[in-house]
Design a protein around this nucleic acid. Structure first.
Length: 851
RNA sequence: GGGCGCGUAGCUCAGUGGGAGAGCGCUCGCUUCACACGCGAGAGGUCGCUGGUUCGAAACCAGCCGUGCCCACCA
């Protein structure tokens, strides 16, 4: 520490994160600490693939929490000397990004169709170049020690190669196929989406009962529906085969009102006899259940609603109306014809697009699918056998349950931004070619080729993130050094969407699990318990928190508030983090500005030195263990408690006289303790610890690459802990006694010791002199007999005495009752009984002394 | 409909078989020479309800009430 540094330390009584963080981050980058060479094996190295944020995204609280957790483990392992890679990148986020750019275009009064595909995609790339690095910069603000030199993007040239290789191989294996099938059509993004991108919401609809006349009979079949407009596409009415009411009608026909089409009455066990009238209209073209039933019975599939959400030509006179308009018109027409038997409010859950928020329109369309069952099998085994360990453990069950019922995945999207599906069609000979790079002409007939228009689901490319980012399918040094990665932290909402798929592709392609452990973290809710969301206005911006309180404060706060269950965002915890950073700074000032010029080393010369070293090493052991078990909340709170309570409140106060005397032993011990505390806290609070480290006499390189402490068990010292903690308790009791007896804060009390001499600090910290003479004892606090003086308020002392007596009597009663219970004495473990006896003895003795 | 959670101090949360904890807030007292983003001392809880198991339950079991999330094709 030079003169300038000393001066800065002396003058700065408050830690200012905003002055420090940018500077420190630059130093780390210049040091190149986050950019490892691709050496060594995955077993000895440590690597993490960041869940790639959307390129359109801005850092939200989920990223901040997830990043804080990953960085804590990444930094700890880097400090342990492991070759550590935290790979970062962004996801092209097909729908989201396309939507952003289309919105821009609309402001210019244009649509993507005005530009044409090529120009539009070009435009998205321009947008990406300008805004795509925003979130990466925001991760830097958090202090995330990612390898920013290896940043990847899911549409990088190399990444596209990986995606195409995967597509081709899955196609060749027969897993990927094209089919006319019912899909979730999202009218908002104008694309099919997968089952996982659909969310069900409770909706108040109207349930309409409609009479369908039975052909050649006076009977009617009444069906119930919330979507009467789809009746235009009905191709059957189904009843349960066991339904005695309708047995005679199966095989007959009804005449579809408004349409006049003759449709059969069929029997299918899917129909619930109890629901409504027990007759179900079948619309294979617009309902997933009806679709299944229709395929089973070979029914015609009619589509009356088009991809634009409007009625098609098939809908006859309703063509051109939107579905809701058609619904109104159909209901009106049915009413006029007297076919509408009933309408009643009906609450049920309805699928909505997770992307656009619009109500899903089930449609039959020609899409690409991927069969998942074969891919799932090894992915199930890997988790069952704990080759991939999921924490908290209940998510293992959830994962396995979902995987065991996995269904085909619709992987095509009717978008322009994304990986265009590597399939080419020859119109001349109807050949379909799947290739990893663009073929020139049709291999069969030499004809012109036309590429599939659709792109792949964004999650198809994120599914290969852990190995595609390392250069697969090439055999790169990165892949050899860092795959499989060490662990993955994630929000549970993408357990299926992403995590499960990475496991499947990892096992299928590189042939190994993508990570050894998965940690599912809590969701941080808004302060009021609602979910944080932009649309609700409940979001809390992590960058604002960083601006105001510092990245360290936010990181500490998020880790401290995290849990295995969802938690509400706690400003208090962030503030606790900020206070901790400030306290670290000031405790360090006390130490660094007052220690003698000695080497940092454990040099205990008093019982309190042995105590603090014991507590330090125990804390290191415990915090490390908790970090490794992903128990971040307890890890940081335990470190906090050791530093603030043990080190600052007690040890520093006890050690001050020796420190000011320039004693070498205490200086060495303090510098040693500080060094280890800084290193221990660095993974969670990297900035403030790095900044303080630059003033520490042991400082050589940066703390980011300094050794992480390993607990020295030889310093564990139960005897010293018992002595000092006894002294602490006595000090606290004396202080409390003074306070309650009305003694002025600054006054010194006279007393004598009756019994074992307490540790020497007790007298100073409690402001009680133990060499009093003359006056009469007026009270006992443990072994201390407080002597009478004019500092004492006689009535307060008497009251205090009376209160204590009452307390003790209650305690004695409790003990006697417990030990008088024969069952307890006979059945409780001996040590528990012994402890009870000891306590009772002590309380009786003290009570006797008071009388 | 199935599954998984949660209900502990005013607030946010720990605690999983032997006398209720933390942070914040609150009260009282401190310009004590690192820090008022501080120091010292306090108040505050029949651990959702009812039964059960146990010598002993906040914790284990059952039921109920309240609440959240995930999955699911009853129109």
């Amino acid at each position: 520490m030079d003169e300038a540094q000393r001066q800065r330390l002396e003058e700065t009584t408050r830690y200012d994160s905003s002055e420090v963080e940018g500077r420190i981050f630059d130093e780390w980058m210049e040091g190149g600490y986050f950019h490892p060479e691709a050496d060594g094996s995955p077993e000895e190295n440590f690597s993490v693939a960041i869940p790639p944020p959307n390129v359109t995204g801005v850092l939200h609280m989920g990223h901040a929490l997830n990043g804080s957790m990953q960085d804590a483990l990444v930094r700890m392992n880097r400090m342990r000397g492991r070759n550590t890679l935290w790979i970062l990148g962004t996801d092209h986020a097909g729908i989201a990004t396309q939507a952003v750019v289309e919105k821009d275009l609309r402001k210019e009064g244009k649509s993507r169709h005005d530009l044409g595909r090529e120009a539009f995609v070009e435009r998205v790339w321009e947008w990406k170049a300008e805004y795509g690095s925003r979130i990466v910069e925001q991760y830097k603000r958090l202090g995330a020690s990612c390898d920013y030199e290896r940043e990847r993007f899911t549409l990088d040239e190399g990444y596209v190669k990986a995606v195409y290789r995967v597509f081709k191989q899955l196609f060749d294996k027969g897993y990927i196929y094209r089919d006319n099938y019912m899909v979730n059509w999202d009218p908002g993004s104008h694309s099919a989406i997968s089952d996982l991108e659909v969310e069900n919401r409770e909706v108040e609809d109207v349930l309409y009962s409609i009479d369908y006349p039975v052909e050649g009979s006076e009977e009617v079949l009444t069906v119930a529906t919330v979507r009467p407009e789809t009746m235009l596409a009905d191709t059957a009415v189904a009843v349960n085969p066991d339904d005695e009411r309708y047995g005679h009608l199966v095989g007959e026909h009804v005449v579809l009102p408004l349409v006049g089409r003759r449709i059969p009455i069929i029997a299918d066990e899917h129909v619930d006899i109890e629901f409504g009238t027990g007759a179900l209209k079948i619309t294979p073209g617009h309902d997933p259940n009806d679709f299944e039933i229709g395929r089973k019975h070979g029914l015609e599939e009619i589509g009356v609603i088009g991809p634009d959400g409007r009625m098609t030509e098939e809908a006859g006179k309703y063509a051109g109306l939107t579905a809701p308009e058609a619904q109104k018109a159909v209901v009106e027409a049915l009413r006029t014809e007297g076919r509408l038997r009933a309408e009643e409010p009906y609450a049920h859950s309805v699928p909505f697009s997770h992307r656009s928020g619009e109500r899903i329109e089930p449609l039959i369309s020609l899409q690409w699918f991927c069969r998942m069952d074969e891919l799932a099998r090894p992915a199930i085994e890997a988790v069952e056998r704990d080759e991939i360990h999921i924490t908290p453990s209940q998510w293992k069950r959830v994962y396995l349950d979902w995987m065991s019922e996995i269904r085909p995945w619709c992987i095509s999207r009717q978008l322009w931004w994304g990986h265009r599906i590597p399939v080419w069609y020859c119109d001349a000979c109807e050949e379909t070619i799947v290739a990893e790079s663009t073929p020139k002409r049709c291999g069969a007939c030499g004809g012109e080729l036309r590429q599939e228009e659709d792109v792949l689901d964004t999650w198809f490319s994120s599914a290969i993130w852990p190995f595609a980012t390392l250069g697969w399918p090439e055999d790169t040094p990165e892949l050899r050094a860092f795959y499989p990665t060490s662990f993955l932290t994630t929000a549970r909402e993408i357990l299926f969407l992403w995590v499960a798929r990475m496991i499947m592709t990892g096992l299928e392609f590189p042939g190994a699990i993508p990570f050894r452990a998965v940690y599912v973290h809590s969701v941080i809710q808004a302060r009021d318990g609602r979910r944080m969301s932009k649309s609700l206005g409940t979001g809390i911006d992590p960058l604002e928190e960083i601006d105001v309180h510092g990245a360290d404060a936010l990181r500490f706060g998020l880790l401290a508030m995290s849990s295995t269950q969802d938690v509400r965002f706690s400003d208090a915890k962030v503030q606790q983090g900020r206070d901790l950073a400030n306290k670290l700074w000031n405790a360090s000032r006390l130490i660094l500005l007052n220690t003698a010029e000695v080497e940092a080393a454990p040099r205990p010369s008093a019982v309190e030195d042995r105590w603090i070293l014991s507590r330090l090493e125990r804390t290191i052991a415990s915090v490390t263990e908790k970090l490794e078990a992903y128990d971040f909340a307890h890890a940081v709170q335990e470190a906090y408690s050791f530093f603030w309570r043990d080190l600052c409140d007690w040890y520093l106060e006890i050690a001050k006289p020796r420190l000011y005397d320039g004693e070498e032993e205490v200086s060495a011990t303090l510098l040693y303790t500080l060094e280890r505390v800084l290193a221990l806290l660095h993974p969670t609070m990297p900035f403030v610890t790095e900044e303080i480290w630059s003033f520490h006499p042991s400082h050589r390189g940066h703390l980011a690459v300094h050794a992480f402490p390993r607990a020295e068990e030889s310093f564990f010292d139960e005897a010293a802990e018992a002595d000092v903690e006894g002294g602490i308790r006595l000090t606290q009791r004396l202080r409390a006694w003074r306070d309650l007896a009305g003694v002025p804060a600054g006054a010194k009390l006279a007393a004598v010791i009756d019994g074992v001499e307490p540790p020497s600090f007790v007298s100073r910290l409690s402001r009680v002199e133990f060499d009093g003479i003359g006056a009469e004892p007026v009270a006992s606090v443990g072994p201390v007999r407080v002597l009478d003086s004019d500092q004492l308020d006689a009535s307060a002392v008497a009251e205090r005495l009376e209160n204590r007596r009452a307390e003790l009597q209650a305690e004695v009663q409790r003990g006697e009752r417990k030990l008088g219970n024969e069952g307890f004495v006979a059945k409780a473990p001996a040590d528990v009984v012994e402890e009870e006896r000891g306590k009772l003895e002590r309380y009786r003795t003290e009570l006797a002394e008071l009388s």
